[in-house]
Design a protein around this nucleic acid. Sequence first.
RNA 1: GCCGAAGUGGUGGAAUUGGUAGACACGCUAGACUUAGGAUCUAGUGCCGCAAGGCGUGGAGGUUCAAGUCCUCUCUUCGGUACCA
Length: 876
Amino acid sequence: MGKEKRNMEERYNPADVEPKWQAFWKDRGLFKVTEDPSKEKYYLLEMFPYPSGKIHIGHVRNYTIGDVVVRYKRMQGYNVLHPMGWDAFGMPAENAAIDNNTHPAAWTYDNIRAMRAQLKKMGFSYDWDREIATCRPEYYKWEQWLFLKMLENGMAYRKESFVNWCEKCQTVLANEQVEQDKCWRCSRPVHQKKLWQWFFKITDFAEDLLVYCDKLPGWPDKVTVMQKNWIGKSVGSELTFQVADMDAEIEVFTTRPDTVFGATFMCLAPEHPLVETLCQGTDQAKAVADFVEKVGTQERSLEGLENYEKEGVFTGRYCINPATGEKIPIYTANFVLMGYGTGAIMSVPCGDQRDFDFARKYGLEIRVVVQPENEALDPDTMETAYTGPGVMVNSGRFDGMDSQKAVDAITDWLAEQGRGKKAVSYRLRDWGISRQRYWGAPIPVIHCPDCGVVPVPETDLPITLPEDANLLEKGGSPLPGLDYFKTAVCPKCQREDARRDTDTMDTFVESSWYYLRYCSPRYDQGMFDQQAVKYWAPVDQYIGGVEHAVLHLLYSRYFMRVLHHFKMIDFKEPFTRLLTQGMVCKETMTCPEHGYLYPEQAQKTKDDTLACTLCGKNVAVGRVIKMSKSKKNVVDPGDLLEKYGADVTRLFCLFAAPPERDLEWSEDGVEGSNRFINRVWRLALECMEKIDREQVLPFTGPAGDLENQAAKELYIKTHQTIQKVTADIDESFHFNTAIAAVMELVNAVYTIDLDGSDHETKAVVLCALENMVLLLSPIVPHFCEELFEKTGCRGSVLEQPWPVFRKDSLETDQVLVVVQVNGRLRAKFSVAAGTEDTAIKTAALADDRVARHIQDKPVKKTILVKKKQILVNIVV
RNA sequence: GCCGAAGUGGUGGAAUUGGUAGACACGCUAGACUUAGGAUCUAGUGCCGCAAGGCGUGGAGGUUCAAGUCCUCUCUUCGGUACCA
């Protein structure tokens, strides 16, 4: 009986300890925060999850990283805001509802409940009082409110735009519902359909968003570079081409106005508004109409683009090249995009590969206007376009000029004639926010047969999404079929047959401002309480997956500009520092019969291959890729949690790799983390048995006061560890090396034999132990609380100040000297700190091994470097 | 194609400003304690070699007393983007 009890104590038992401290934290309200002007604030946020049902390893990793920093900052005395909530709108809820014959709302709320419980089990230090779910009317009411404000200020507008449409299902498909150009439900080809949709004018802020990419020092370069590319600014000119024999002009955007003399034809995007007018009355009308129709149904998918032939047809009309005055044919071509520039290009086959290919295909003139210095290009024999800079030819008065100078010169010249101007073009397009879907925030407008689009009066907000609508088998939105939702009275003319907009907003709208809502989550007078936001925002540290590098992060930056424009906030950048954690990856496994398999569905056989547990066939091991449900290469953190507890799970996730690195999942190391936890556990309990706390206080003085050499070294090691762990957590988030440093300290304490040791040693061991617990507490908080209590302390480690290292106790008396001969390591020895350089050199030369390598060669030079160790390099 | 990141033992990963390559772990080997060990402890573990020694950070050059780290070229992998005029 006695022995059994002792055995229990010898191991850390998460099943008892973890719930105990979770309850303790909760009862004491340790994670609740309010604005406190006397304390410095720190707002740490992890990207909120979509409530898919279960947390996955990626969440565990993400939230553990954040929680460590939060607990560390709290111990440093910051007033820390650390909220959690749910990105609760979105399509998976609709799909799941159809598949399981339930309702998106019910499914979502169930999932939230399950995931909240899991997060609580992990011991994350959230202020749960601030929890929000974006599918709640109290939340999206304010999003609708902002939409109205943007509409009023011309920042939201409506235009016709294309969506993926399935004719069979009569529904709009999101991009991810289109699989290899086919509808995911019925496998019929998908085509583009034009619908009226709402847009946010993010392009108004393109330049500002771009400029500020360089003012985000706390962001990884990789992310700002991706955003810059996404915004895609290019500087060039807009030139005007008069259509021959017609009262019309065509604007083109070009980055190469220097080549305008070589523009021998023009191409318009098939959707260009002039295409239809141009061909009218020419014998090309039919050909053009057929072509436009064909391109419209052509799928512009990724694979499609690879072998996408450049095609076009003549519109039957010509325009005048403003530089040469010549008539050039106007084509419409499938490679010209309506969404970029003006949707029309001047084609210069000698200077652009696409135009070159097109000209060769249709027998159009190629005229060389820029050629490399000292080389004449022959249009009849050249095989590729020349796109580099060079000397101008065939360009009238500009002949002989450097082409880069001609860029401005020609633009100015054309500008004088009113035929051109400098222009900037962005790749970024306005943000289309209409979704023809059900599970989202309704767009608060009413369509009246007389008044047109009428905003819903602010007093009528929120426009509540009916949570009881029955979903359609085919996957479309039920809203257009719900009369009680759809019919509305026109707020302007009171006509009773007006129609409510049945589209909902893109879910990226919710995630663009949720972090402000957390500052005052129950505020009912507006989106947020400006005072609270003034105190907490912006987010000091944001943590999430790199997959959101562009959309979510760019939309959020845009939203802050909108709010700033409305003077609702006084900053423009939402996230001061950003950490993009790496993905958690795992190999996929496929069975010839059952397709992708979950890891537990593949079992090792005798001959070391894997067999499917369903059919016994050989399992093929695929590439290591990001964990995803569809590939089934997922690991349920619930199992780990069950077996090892939250702290070991947290420790393992952090120790496996630095946060920004991708992590190939393998549980081989979990045992090691478990072992470490128990090693510390035993060490602490054993020390407590051997050290009488009534008699001994932890040593806190300078290392120089210690007489016992071993104790002194341990004491120095302790302070070195504090320094290292603090730097690793604070500066680089490299928790793996922080943990390794503590492991070294633990190993060092293990070498000390406490039986019969002196008082000094005990005091130093106690100091090491106490610091160990404090340093580990952000990482393995339950474990450390328990040890803190077991070592005779009261209260919570959370309320302890973070340890501070003593500058006077970081260096040992003995310094290692490494000796190289011609750059190769030959000997090592220690000297007392402060030994003269000459004495070190003499000692180095006297070393046997060194002497053997020098032999009788003359010593040319001796280099001595004093860093963390002393290095002597003898050159012979 | 373009942009970005990364390549270090059997494995995950360490190495301020160039200064002991492989910290800390996993795994493995041997031993100890045990009725037992998948607990724990001790020792060993980059590769070749009996040793002296040699070779080693994707590859090839270079700079330097000294290169994982800096320069040039190159290969591979991953991520982003894709007719952007």
